[in-house]
Design a protein around this nucleic acid. Structure first.
Lengths: 192, 192, 192, 192
DNA sequence: TATGAATGAGTCTTCATTCAT
DNA sequence: CATGAATGAAGACTCATTCAT
């Protein structure tokens, strides 16, 4: 059983995905959430103020997707591929919403929260890299905190490229993914 | 002297930066542009349809900033640093607008234009990498078209991190930039 | 031909009289004024902000009623009766609206304007008393400016009493009016 | 310790004074009264239905103020001055609320209650005048019931003028009060 | 009695769009 | 081409009222 606030957030995610920020009416959100119009305003003062809560849910989803994909008993290189696969897959599903949330936050002084919200994911990747660094699988000169952000930035932007390309004949997801993997492994200084 | 269409585009950039997409009214744009309400419709059918024109201006500015920074007689490694510097600098100035334009295009059917608009910049970077590849400064296995996009994605997302961090004590632009440069050079397989 | 602002003010007077402030909708006003909903907001930011303009019109009406009733060639005593008759008649028609306007102004920081708006009427009564004072019809010790306000206050509040009484058996307009006239003449120190 | 009904009435007085009728919400009243939203409806069916109870409290206060000021062993003329002083003082404190209550009653069908509520005060003034009439201090032709209302109407409206004037240089409370006293004494036909 | 979260009808308010000048 | 007052459909938002606890 979800409480009303969670219902609103989840409904908002669906409606924003479906219609975009501009065309989403609060009445659409409440209809999907199965609550009354006025109830929305007990929890959020405006449409855009739902954004930070959405961002949190999205990062939770992304992390869950990554964790579900990774086989911890496999080699680092395999796990790396699994992480990239998961991010590619998640990003292609949610890239539009992610852009909207980002823009929504950017236009309302909430942008600093983006950092906070993404933190758990950065931490997880940091930890992932740290273990590889300790076992000597990746180069020792790496700063895992900073690199975790480069990692995510690189893979997500690469994944977005695929989306933009998906109607073109000269490229496809797999080739792009291999290119990223290669670039990433070299950047990380992998030895395996 | 700017013509009316240019006035609209430049006014729209200012207003979008100031208020975000959602809160920007056409009346704000025309007020700043110093033209009449009705005149807007002689040039654009809607608020969001100005976005592609804004994106063009933005990419022009970004390319101009990069070109101005690069010394073509310097070594590839030096030029690489100059390119990264220019993108960092540009991104920190325009990152909000960039997110808005991206989201604005994403929320309509204009998203494919993003690709078209960014193309000249991708081409320039491709060419830049191609020359380095020919001279053997970077690894031969690289696909310059695809890598140009990874390159820009990586550097821009790294630059955004800096912006988000700029009030924190534990990181600073220079350290972050060095980390990116290192990652980038390894990813490109630079030999110098 | 009335301009739009005047149309709004006159429509608002009618609707406020008919329904009271609370139950008046802006849609009622614009419907009666024969203009579009949005047009209202080009001239007034809210329902209550029409009040000062209404107050002005009301004072104009009251003065016009008084002037129309007074026969300047008659004796002062006769003219006095005519003034009182006119105020009684006007007040009984508009007393509810007057209370509403007064309360409306009082609750919105506009109350100081009440003074300004009533000024022309005070001036007219002052002048009326001044002439009587010069001809020696009323006592010399009178300050006409201040007394003009006492005069209007006394007569209007007496007129309101009548309204409150009109369903009672023990009083009627004429008796009340005579009592006021007597009180007033003594207060003014009339000699005739 | 106040009971809940009294809490509501006193909270309503404060809020109406602060915000005016229009902008006062029941939620404001209950918040200030420190009770729950639903509790309001156990005592009053609507916002405006609190008005008669407020009016009662107001008249009680006004009478108490007058009685406290009057020295029954003094001469009539002195007592008259004391009454006027008390009304001036009370009116300047509560004039806004008085206008609101009046308008509030006027805009519903409660207006007739105004009469009822004010009755004790009218009676007191009537009695006060009656005694003076019997002792021959004021003229015999006076109808004390009707005149009590003229009396209060005159003094209260004069007091409001002072309030409106208090920022002006050309008038002040004392001069205005003297003018009223003079007018009043003549109207009453005082001999002393 | 008392509570206060939830409701949703009723209004306010905005703002893209039009069109006579 | 250019204007900007006027429009009114669309949606945001409020707040009196209810009712399960």
């Amino acid at each position: 059983m979800m409480n009303k606030k969670e219902k609103i957030v989840h409904a908002a995610i669906e409606v924003f995905k479906e219609k975009g920020i501009e065309k989403t009416k609060i009445s659409d959100i409440v209809k999907l959430a199965g609550i009354a119009q006025g109830t929305f305003y007990l929890y959020f003062p405006s449409k855009l103020s739902v954004m930070p809560a959405i961002a949190e849910v999205m990062v939770e989803k992304e992390m869950a997707a990554v964790k579900a994909q990774v086989d911890e008993s496999a080699s680092f290189s395999t796990q790396l591929t699994q992480v990239v696969d998961a991010i590619f897959s998640f990003t292609s599903d949610y890239r539009e919403l992610q852009a909207l949330v980002y823009a929504g936050l950017a236009s309302t002084e909430h942008i600093k929260e983006w950092e906070t919200v993404y933190q758990p994911f950065y931490s997880w990747i940091s930890q992932f890299l740290q273990e590889a660094k300790i076992s000597g699988v990746i180069r020792h000169s790496i700063n895992v905190e900073r690199t975790s952000k480069l990692f995510i930035g690189l893979v997500e932007s690469a994944a977005e490229q695929i989306y933009l390309y998906d109607s073109k004949q000269d490229g496809n997801a797999d080739t792009q993914k291999l290119e990223v993997m290669d670039f990433l492994k070299r950047g990380l200084g992998i030895r395996e």
